[in-house]
Every structure is written in C-alpha cells, then in structure tokens.
Amino acid sequence: MASAFPIEVKIFMKKRQNVIIKGTKEGLTLHLNDDCSFQELKDELDEKLSANERDHEKRPLIPVKLETGNRYLSEIQREELKSLVRQKKNLVVDEIESNVISKEEAEKTRRENEIISVARIIRSGQILEVQGDLLLFGDVNPGGKVIAGGNIFIMGALRGIAHAGCFGNKQAVIAASIMKPSQIRISDLINQTINRVRNDDNHEMECAYINHQEQIVVDRLQGLIHIRPDLTRLEGGR
C-alpha cells in the first residue's frame, strides 16, 4: 500500500482543474490554467463544455470570455480555442484576455501610442514619417512633408504637406501654430484648399480634423476639447 501514495498524488494533480467556468453578468468567463500543456487544456475544455451541454437550440448566443493568464497564445491557437468553443452550440468567444503579449506586439503598440518629438525644420524635398503621434518643434516648409500614423502637432509653421492618421485613422488631427499648408491629408481624405470654420483673420494656433460631413476643416485649437475628447490621456489630476 506504501506505493499507492505517489499514485494518489498523481491523481490529485490530474484532478486539478485546468478550466474553471464562471458566470458573470456579461456572460461566461473561462479561466484557463496556464501551467498545463495546450493539448491538455483543449481536451479539458472540450470535455467541460460537452458536460455542460444541454439541448436548447433556440437560446440566444452567450458571449464567452477566455482568460488565459500567463499563457501566450499564437494566432492559430486562438482560432483553435474559438472554434472549439463555437462548436458548443450557443457559446461564442467574445474576447480572449491574456496577461502576456509578444515583444513584437508590444513594440507595435508602443510605436502607435508614442508621441515622437522632433526638433527640426522639414525643408523642401524632405519627408518625416512616424508611426504614432508627431510633435514637431520647427516648421514644415513648402515642399516638405510630415506623415504620422496618429496626430500631428506642429509648434511652428505648417507650410508644406501634413498627413495624419495615414493608416486610416479618421479621428486624427493636425495642429499647428501657423496653419498655412499647401495640402492637408487625414486618413484617405485630401484637401488642397483650407476650409476654415471661422472667417476672421486671427489664424493663430489652429487644428484640422474630419467633421461629420466627412470633410477636412480647420478651426481654432480650443475646439478640439469638444471634438476629440480622446486626445486627453491624463487621468485624474487636480
């Protein structure tokens, strides 16, 4: 009987749940153990969900959230889990949450959210391109071009071309101390003439954005507070 002890331990280990199902107001959350192998996880998931399976075809789809803890899932593995859950009648994976992301993804997110500051004059024939937001201390001269995946803030004169949201972000804005661009582009819209919201001569500190009519317009910088509240990233404060 002495030899039974390790076996018991083994059984105990095996009994440890790799998939824990919790019900919340939003739907189901599946906590997936991050210590076991992916195959074990899949097997148990399959088993657990099958056990719970009842025949109610008319029921609406229940959104399921997967929490994978510290397990990194590749795109293929994610799809595998999604299809596995989807096979179980009225369950559908709404979201997969993981504590870990790949270095590449982290780098990409960082680049896209970063404000890159540059102190330089962008002269005729020069192009400055950034993935995130651009903060330029200097001018963009005629014939020069600045391109950003996000917003463009120019602490000088914009006399050349500025292209904000170049990957398709229509929320992107372009702000400049002196707004005299030869061309403005936001996302896939291009403006050669500037549509100013106001018609006074006080052209200090202006910003360009896409309005509800899908047109690029230029307005006072202060207007951004209402038009793009998302520009504020500071939380709290006094």
Binding site: R123, S124, G125, Q126, N141
Partner: peptide, 12 residues
C-alpha cells in the same frame, strides 16, 4: 527660395 530650402536640407 524654395530651391534654396531644398539645398539647405541637403547640405545639413
């Protein structure tokens, strides 16, 4: 002036 700007950019 436009061409000078270009040249300055290259010289820099």
């Amino acid at each position: 002036v436009r061409d000078a700007d270009r040249i300055i950019g290259l010289l820099e």
